[in-house]
Design a binder for these strands. Structure first.
Length: 354
DNA sequence: AACGCGGGGCT
DNA sequence: AGCCCAGCGTT
């Protein structure tokens, strides 16, 4: 097929290979917005259930605006990057309130929303309003860097600017929405990070990286994130009937989610330090083995120490939760695992000793 | 410009 | 173990 443009080939490939995704069945800005926030740094497979549950709970932007933040966070639990949920809620209140329910309808106005950056603004503007502004996400970066031979580090701001211009130059003027969908889908399914399908690629005849044998070298990233080790010792206070949890505020990770009283540092507490801390609250009953929880930038080594308290009168600040209601608060993944699986046998021991 | 922010899947 | 994912906000 000679004389087909880059965009022509991508769109032709897209029509033959696209996935059937729920947010492709609508042009409603609210639904597209929800889907795009969920999909920030998140795979389609991981976000799918969250998309359905959020829209079921909040069918309109007004429903979302009227919800409690804790309810939104509970629905977001397990998805990560929890500031997305906070910004989602704040933006819903902004749209339902001052904007009187009218969703911003162009790139510039969308960009002003909390949690909406250049990628998301371009996505909503093109998908919902057919505005010809190019999306540049990780997929697009990869396709452009390989096909056009962008060898500078893609995580440098000058390169990002170049890629945005390159993407904008090649967007198909008549069909910006479909072009944007197509190039992202192409990156996700065909021009993949590892083992891309170059053998049957519709762009193989003119791909820079394929011609020069640099497919596995592009895109090039200069920085790699440092993973810092952190030890967390949790003290799980319980009388056998209730548990003391605490909301994380200004704590960096897991902001606005609930966990237990903790001591966080470079190394885990010594056994004697655990005993000493436990004594401040009650009687030490049990400790778990260390579980390792990996974040992009942290390696968390976590232990839980169950402490029996006689009475709650002089407890530290926190939220008392009945054990049977322990699923109701939004908690980080390792806390969820402890609450719903690991902890049961430990605090049931406390109950017997009461 | 550099860093912080989750969790999961793939190699 | 390292990389990446429909990135954004803060400093």
């Amino acid at each position: 097929m000679p004389n087909l443009s880059f965009s022509d080939r991508i769109i032709r490939w897209y029509r033959a290979n696209k996935r059937d995704l729920p947010w492709r069945q609508t042009h409603e800005p609210y639904r597209i917005w929800i889907s795009e926030i969920i999909l920030q740094q998140t795979r389609v497979d991981q976000g799918m259930d969250y998309y359905h549950r959020l829209l079921e709970a909040f069918p309109t932007v007004t429903d979302l605006a009227n919800a409690d933040l804790d309810q939104v966070l509970k629905l977001w639990q397990g998805l990560g990057y929890y500031s997305r949920a906070r910004n989602l809620h704040a933006t819903a209140q902004w749209i339902a309130g001052p904007l009187k329910g009218k969703f911003p309808s162009n790139y510039k106005d969308l960009l002003a929303l909390k949690g909406v950056g250049p990628y998301t603004a371009a996505a909503i503007a093109s998908f919902c309003f057919n505005e010809p502004v190019a999306v540049v996400d990780g997929n697009v970066e990869r396709v452009l860097a390989r096909y056009f031979g962008v060898e500078e580090p893609v995580d440098a701001s000058a390169t990002k600017k170049l890629l945005q211009q390159l993407a904008q130059e090649h967007i198909a003027a008549p069909r910006p929405a479909e072009h944007n969908q197509a190039i992202m889908e192409f990156g996700a399914l065909q021009c993949t990070p590892k083992n891309p399908s170059c053998a049957n690629c519709p762009l193989q005849a003119s791909c820079f990286a394929l011609r020069l044998g640099k497919v596995s070298d592009l895109p090039f990233k200069a920085k790699r994130t440092q993973v810092k080790a952190v030890a967390i010792d949790y003290f799980v206070l319980t009388d056998g009937r209730e548990l003391l949890l605490r909301k994380r505020v200004d704590q960096g990770i897991w902001n606005n989610l609930h966990d237990f009283l903790s001591i966080e540092g470079e190394a885990p507490l010594t056994d004697s330090a655990v005993q000493r801390e436990a004594k401040k609250f009650g009687e030490w009953r049990a400790s778990t083995e260390t579980v390792v929880h990996l974040l992009s930038h942290r390696k968390l080594s976590i232990r839980f120490h169950v402490v029996q308290v006689k009475r709650w009168e002089e407890r530290p600040n926190g939220v008392l939760v009945k054990i049977r209601n322990r699923h109701e608060l939004a908690v980080p993944k390792p806390i969820h695992d402890f609450l719903m699986e690991v902890g049961g046998p430990l605090w049931s021991g406390v109950r017997k000793k009461n």
